[in-house]
Amino acid sequence: MELERTYHFKKTLEKKERFAPGHRLCAGCGAGIAVRGVLRALNEEDRAVIGNATGCLEVSSFLYPYTAYEDSYIHTAFESAGASLSGVEAAYNALKRKGKVKDTVKFITFGGDGGTYDIGFQSLSGAMERGHDLTYVCYDNEAYMNTGIQRSSSTPRFASATTSPAGSVVPGKKQNKKNLTDIIAAHNVPYVAQTTFIGNFRDLYTKARKAIYTPGATFLNVMAPCPRGWEYPAEMLPEICRLAVETCVWPLFEVENGVWRLSYEPKKKLPVEEYLRMQGRFRHMFKPGNEWMIEAAQKSVDENWEKLLAKCLG
C-alpha cells in the first residue's frame, strides 16, 4: 500500500475514535494517548484485532464487561502478547485462504515495558523472527506500573523505583536502560521506530502508519510517561516528552529495511538535567554530593546519542 506523503493533522482527528473513553487508566496516563495515537493511523475501512499484554492498559481497558475497543481485542497473559497475536495472524491467513474471512484485518498488539522488555521479551522476539504481519507497540513507561512502580530493564539508571529505591547507600537503579529498539532492529524486521508525543503527533502518526502498513513484523517503541511512577504533575506530560526528545534521552528515529534514519535532531541538545529535574523519581540526584549521578546520566545519554548518530549517518 502506498502511504500518503503529506500529514493532515486535522484530518487525522476527524477519523472515528477507536479507543473509547470510560477505561480506567489514571488521569493523564501516557498509555491511553499511545493507544489512541497508534489506532488513529489505521485506515478507517480496515478492521483490526488489538492484542495486549497484561499491565495497566489491559486491566483498565477491558475490565469486565467494559471493553474500550471498537475493534476485536485479545488479552491472554503478561508474557504472551507476541505469541498470541502470532496465532491470530496465522488464523487470519488460514481463514482467508479458505474464504471464511474476506476483508483486510490488521494486527496490533500493545505491551508495557514489563510485558515487552522483560517477561514478554522471548515471545516478542519469536513473533518478530517469524515475521508475522503484525505490529508490536511498546508503551514504555520505564517500570512495572501496574504492580506498583517496580524497576524493569527499561528503567533508566538512578531512577528510584519500588524495587530499586534510592537510599543512603544505593543510588536508585544501578543498571542502564536496555536498548530494546536496537535489539528489535537486530531482528532484521522491515520497520522499527522510536517515538513519543511531540507537537502535532506527526512523528507518532506517520511511524504508526508505516508500522501497520509495512508487510511483515514491525515494532514501535513509544515513550509513554506515567505521572504517578515518574512523580510529576499529570498536566506536564507534553513538556516531559518534549524534554526527553530535546535532551536526546529519547531520540526519535526509525529503521526501515535496515536503513537507520534520525527523525529529529535538536538544534541545541539540552542538558539531561532539565529532563531529570521535573521528575520525582530522580529527586535524589539533585542532593548535594550526588552531582556525579547527573554527570554519569549525561555521559550515558551522550554516548548513546553518538552511537545513534553514527548508525544514522553511517
Partner: peptide, 20 residues
C-alpha cells in the same frame, strides 16, 4: 507456526482459536 517455546505454542493456539 514454529514457535520458540511451548508457552508460545499454547499462546498462539489461544490467539488462533479465538480468531475463529
Amino acid at each position: 507456526v514454529p514457535v520458540e517455546s511451548e508457552h508460545s505454542s499454547m499462546s498462539a493456539c489461544i490467539g488462533a482459536q479465538a480468531a475463529g
